[in-house]
Design a protein around this nucleic acid. Structure first.
Lengths: 142, 142
DNA sequence: GACGAAATTGGAATAATTCTAAAGAAGGCT
DNA sequence: AGCCTTCTTTAGAATTATTCCAATTTCGTC
């Protein structure tokens, strides 16, 4: 069984839950994110999936990514007006943006800290998403 | 002494610290942010300052806002590819983006919590900026 | 196998921001 | 005061990520 096929079941399931169809395009896009988890942009995903599905269009890549975000299989990560990046890590986590290399890295976010952060909201404020982003330098960015 | 003048001293000081000049354009842009602190976009700032300096250009508004950000007088706030908003609140704080109205609100961020958040970074990671953004619904957004 | 809905496609359109080159102000120096 | 250099502003063009559009294509269902 290929890596591709391993994930396609979970994908098909989530899509079905949302009343959406599974398609080759959605599979290769999702697979591209899972295979190399370095927060690619839509353009980068496009480049990757073209090798597997040469006829795919950039518009479709955008559509598929949006669909995956809607299904909660992928998170869209925005950083200071740079192109949106996509992240298949569903655990609660923050992002660290390395100024030197421009790369983005996941930072584990303990549940109890997440709770503490949510607790700073005044009563009545109801957050259904939190985004925490660091900018700075990493040990090995020379 | 006008509100305008009250702030222009601090502005002139910070600009001088960075080797930059004070100009009428920079003053009215900064004043526009201080007078109505509702996280305006560059376009909104442009609309405000035109009443005081009719000949000002949008490019200049962008330039001035960028200058104020460089001087650490203003923070640029980005939320999911929406136009950048500008915030003259220099205290450490998070942002809450109300899904219903599209408005952005400052949320006080206690120093010790900020320290705890920074502490999740692995050794060697050096953050010089943190951005924390909530998305959700506020009590009074009907 | 035909029908209707959903998905994909290429290209045009959008919109925030940045770039560019020229004109305008401002401070320093003699 | 006058000149020189540097910084700033300006208008408009350019850029670029993303979305929109209308026309196929695909797919599940009857």
């Amino acid at each position: 069984m290929s890596t591709h096929a391993i994930h396609s079941d979970a994908l098909a399931q989530k899509l079905a839950d949302s009343g959406l169809r599974n398609t080759p395009q959605r599979e290769v896009v999702y697979d591209a994110l899972l295979t190399k988890r370095n927060h690619p942009t839509a353009d980068e995903v496009f480049a990757r999936v073209k090798t597997q599905l040469p006829g795919i269009s950039l518009a479709t890549v955008y559509n598929c990514l949006e669909t995956l975000v809607q299904c909660n299989l992928v998170r869209a990560v925005n950083f200071e007006r740079a192109p949106t990046r996509y992240c298949p890590n569903l655990h609660p986590h923050a992002h660290f943006h390395d100024e030197t290399t421009g790369t983005t890295h996941d930072i584990e976010l303990p549940e109890n800290l997440l709770a503490k952060i949510k607790a700073i909201l005044p009563p009545g404020y109801n957050a259904n998403a939190i985004e925490i982003t660091f900018r700075g330098k990493m040990p090995d960015s020379r």
